[in-house]
Design a protein around this nucleic acid. Structure first.
Lengths: 239, 239, 239, 239
DNA sequence: AATGAATGAGATTTCATTCAT
DNA sequence: AATGAATGAAATCTCATTCAT
């Protein structure tokens, strides 16, 4: 009652603000802990107890901040998607005006976010049961949204004559897929490629299909990453 | 070995043969039921009871045919992989000698198997926890194996000068990924594309990046599927 | 009907006799198999399937000869008790007239039966739950019956003045217990004693408490087995 | 160790202490309930549900305190053995210096512990399957340990010339066996004997075999319990 | 705000028993 | 007489969620 009275007296109550801040901090702490265990163990294997232990709090507390396990899982996934939303556009902006440079920057940023949350990315592919229809839809919509920077870059590039006249949505989604592949099929790619090589390679392959034939010469440095490395010499001397 | 020798010695043991046949049939019935529920509900959500109900048998019976839930899940997944192993090579052989035709046939066959087991394909991406290391390795190895026809076709095509000198393993795996995409991101692609269009499109995109520039003219029919359909007229008059 | 008519015609039907014989043989085969697995694995661990496998027949067949698992278990136990009933009295008869000799023979025979069915003996101590009241009573009564030869020998020995005037029933039951001990606490006794030594030892201990003091000298050979072996008897005379 | 050090450092953590206390109390409650049902029904027959019902808690709770059924069973058995370990030595100490008095006290104490946990004692004889090798060994070792007071008393008595020079280990184990008999063969002994009579009787029988002949006269009160009560001893001399 | 003991539904697995062939 | 596929009840164990403190 005393606090309530205070609040009534001054609407810009620092108490409330502090409380809000603590709440956010707690949320973040729990979210991070959840992400950590889920990424370590694999989502379904993770019990609420495990999350609580990881965060060094009691199980009960989690329920004060998240409605239940589903909500927590959803929050973990959305957290990754938020990283896309904030990282990719920034990278594109920083990349200058050249369409290919911009695409390379966007794709690279995308891949790096995935590398950062490699295991959590896989979670997206396992959500089906746990999440309810609403949660699933939200994730899907958000995911589509995260491809918008790529779509924009592609569209601009087509209009500028740098790219062939492809369907930007489809190509963007394909880029998202091969980026996810680093997480989904990590066991396969890590056999032969480092993360950076994989990104370069995939980008090169994609650009080969995208760039207007007569523009190719300008982007050789992007394009040759996917050439077979075992027979490199025959090309180099001639050029 | 021993049984085979016995059978050879006395070819007529109709009893044993009939029993084997019935056993196979039951296995298949249970496998199908399992696949059906798993595809419908999503693997982890599926209890043995649910499988039993779907197959209209008792829970106990499943354990006569499969060692446990893991083994059943593994069997469902391997079943899909076996379909690849038998369908794709046949399609390649039937396709003639042209490298691009062969690649198109292989990719198309691959996609059609996925379409046939769309949901079961998704299971492969969720096996993580349930399966033990042995099972997981088996699946991975088998999956890599199923890309071998694509690798072969690519290699031949490169040697024949039809494709650019890419890394065949990597490109094959990328093709596998975009084929899987039809299952993994079905909710996205089905918005704008039919299955056949999607296959054509993906193939076209890939071929644009693969075919040697001076060979392009010969494969126009494969290549134009990924051109933007919204502005079709500008292309037509020229040709 | 035809067979029935035949039976009516000649009451000493060889067919029926043969059938009875086969039935007995089967029963025995199944019983032996059951005893073997139970003795090997330990009763509750034993499934009907295991018994069937051991006997190389189908599960179903067991139910034709025994009402169920309980009945089978009961039969296995009774089988051991029958061995007592037929072995012990014979050994006593073969032992001559001396009470101590007779007791030694009876106890030795008892112990040897237990050694023969060591694990099955333990079963008797685990029947509790599985068997119904009727079965349990039957076993108990039969067990008491198997001590009768010992009781008889003791009573005669008391009347003949060879044994002290103890309660024969109680002493007989104690002898049964230490005989069972070889099965129940085999892990303990086998550390330090062979079967034969154990029997001799136990007999010696018991006789020390039983034989009339003034008769002792006559039975030295039975009595010294339990003397401490570390201090050879040569010490005694001196004191 | 660590906790102990901590407690020493800050002796006042009433919270933790209270929690520990409550935990102990619960453990004890569950253990008692388990013992009660197991003693009533017979160990294998006992489901976790039954234990939970008996203790008036939920099944899940038992798993908070005991790792599983095995661990619970083990705890029940160890609980009995702990009673031996604390009761028997105390009884021996309280018995004075006379070897026979001490043996009588030890055996009596042993028997009373068994009477207190009559049914739980039987469990020891049924543990075989359920318990793992480690648990079984632990029980065996503990059981052997509980005979040490008897062994000590016997050894001292032999050295003092009160007992014949027997193997103390073997005789001690035999005493343990006849003590267990009250539990194992309760249905038999209770027909004719009260608990106290049974103890006296068994002790008398054992002492007859143990006490040095020329010491007998001093211990008549222990020795005559096993004389036949039906024919009063006054008759014997005449015959 | 925070704890963690307690709940109880539900999942996997086993196995005695039946019954059509 | 014999088989063994099929059943289904029961047992163990896990874990999301609640609630008294």
């Amino acid at each position: 009652m005393n606090p309530a009275a205070l609040e009534a007296a001054m609407p810009l109550d620092p108490d409330r603000a502090a409380r809000e801040a603590r709440k956010m901090q707690r949320s973040r702490q729990l979210l991070d802990a959840a992400a950590r265990v889920m990424e370590r163990e694999g989502s379904h294997a993770v019990s609420m107890q495990a999350v609580a232990d990881e965060a060094d709090v009691s199980v009960g507390l989690i329920y004060r901040y998240f409605g239940g396990k589903d909500e927590l899982l959803l929050a973990v996934i959305l957290n990754v998607l938020e990283d896309f939303a904030s990282t990719v556009p920034a990278a594109v902006e920083a990349a200058g005006d050249d369409p290919v440079e911009r695409l390379a920057a966007a794709f690279g940023a995308y891949c790096r976010v995935i590398e950062r949350h490699r295991h959590a990315t896989v979670l997206t592919y396992r959500e089906s049961k746990s999440l309810d229809e609403a949660g699933r839809r939200r994730i899907k919509e958000y995911e589509v949204e995260t491809t918008q920077p790529l779509v924009g870059v592609l569209r601009d590039g087509i209009d500028a004559g740098a790219f062939r006249p492809v369907e930007p949505e489809m190509v963007a989604y394909n880029l998202l897929l091969v980026a996810h592949a680093w997480a989904l099929k990590h066991w396969y790619f890590e056999r032969t490629l480092s993360f950076e090589d994989c990104v370069r390679n995939q980008l090169s392959l994609a650009l080969h299909g995208l760039i207007e034939p007569r523009q190719r010469r300008r982007y050789t440095r992007f394009l040759e990453a996917s050439e077979r490395r075992s027979r490199p010499s025959t090309v180099a001397p001639g050029s």
